[in-house]
């Protein structure tokens, strides 16, 4: 009997913490968004309705989605390429190998600072452009950060997430290499064919999962759109924050409704990733 309850006992402290701080937090957020502190005594969805009938919310949603999608796509592709490079350089130049870990250690806002330095109208790239004779004045350089399009935000995410994806894929690539490279070669495959026929199909599930993680993160992240964004359109988390801190109680409930909507979307994404991962694994064969 003791043996049976042992795992539950061991898990109790951690579960308690998560429950109190996370689950209850979500629960309280839900109840507040359903109007538990409002004047009516019944819970209602009015806040959600109000939120999602506002076209402003929808443009924020589109904006956030766009940022997340483009960041994920770019860092996904670049990360894959980078991980192949890592595979080659790991034995040749360990110094480069270690250096490429650096962006992983630093938070996004340092990356934001770099992008600002590089890409603002009087930034480094602009000065290079001047040197090369493309422009003669800072105002001629396109607005790349703090722009309506969100390019600065996307660039920052690319800076940080490309190494992340590369490092997620690297162990898988290494394992594939150690296992099947010889067999592929002795079946007459050159490096290109090996990459296309063996590596890419086998690394795909991990790549997809990593991309979903990046997407979920960039979709729901606050800091970078806050730092590099403009007043319209705002990313959803930023919008939520503005509402939350506006001091208006009604707006606060809207903020919670929005945050929970964000949580709902990422939750669905997470679930979807999990299902997809399982399906791919059973299709392609287990435990390699």
């Amino acid at each position: 009997m003791w043996q049976n309850s042992k795992p539950y006992l061991f898990l109790l402290p951690a579960i308690t913490m998560i429950f109190v701080l996370f689950v209850m937090g979500l629960g309280e957020g839900i109840s507040q968004s359903l109007g538990v502190y409002s004047s009516t005594d019944k819970l209602h969805f009015a806040y959600y309705v109000q939120l999602w009938s506002d076209p402003n919310t929808w443009s924020s949603l589109k904006f956030t989605f766009k940022i997340a999608f483009l960041s994920t796509l770019s860092s996904g592709i670049l990360g894959l390429i980078l991980s192949v490079v890592l595979l080659r350089t790991s034995d040749q130049t360990p110094l480069l190998f270690k250096t490429l870990q650096l962006p992983l250690l630093l938070p996004h806002f340092i990356g934001a600072y770099f992008i600002v330095l590089l890409c603002m109208q009087s930034g480094f790239l602009a000065r290079i452009a001047y040197l090369l004779g493309f422009i003669s004045d800072p105002s001629q350089f396109p607005i790349l950060v703090n722009d309506h399009w969100g390019l600065g935000i996307i660039l920052t995410y690319i800076w940080k997430e490309t190494p992340f994806i590369a490092w997620m894929l690297y162990p898988v690539l290494k394992r594939i290499q150690n296992t099947w490279w010889d067999a592929a070669r002795l079946s007459g495959a050159n490096r290109f064919q090996y990459m296309r026929e063996i590596v890419l199909p086998l690394v795909f599930p991990t790549w997809l999962t990593s991309c979903f993680i990046v997407f979920a993160f960039t979709f729901s992240a606050f800091e970078i759109p806050y730092l590099l964004g403009v007043s319209y359109p705002q990313a959803l988390p930023v919008l939520s924050y503005e509402l939350f801190t506006s001091g208006d109680w009604e707006k606060r409930s809207l903020a919670l409704a929005l945050s929970l909507s964000i949580a709902f979307i990422t939750g669905i994404l997470g679930f979807f990733t999990y299902i997809l991962g399982k399906r791919i694994r059973t299709q392609k064969g287990v435990g390699w």
């Binding site: 689950v23 209850m24 937090g25 939350f244 903020a255 945050s259 964000i262």
Partner: peptide, 20 residues
Amino acid sequence: LLFAPLIIPPFVAMMGLQIT
């Protein structure tokens, strides 16, 4: 449950928890 904060952004829970 234990890995949920990786998927569902913790700030949502914190916004809700703030009153408490």
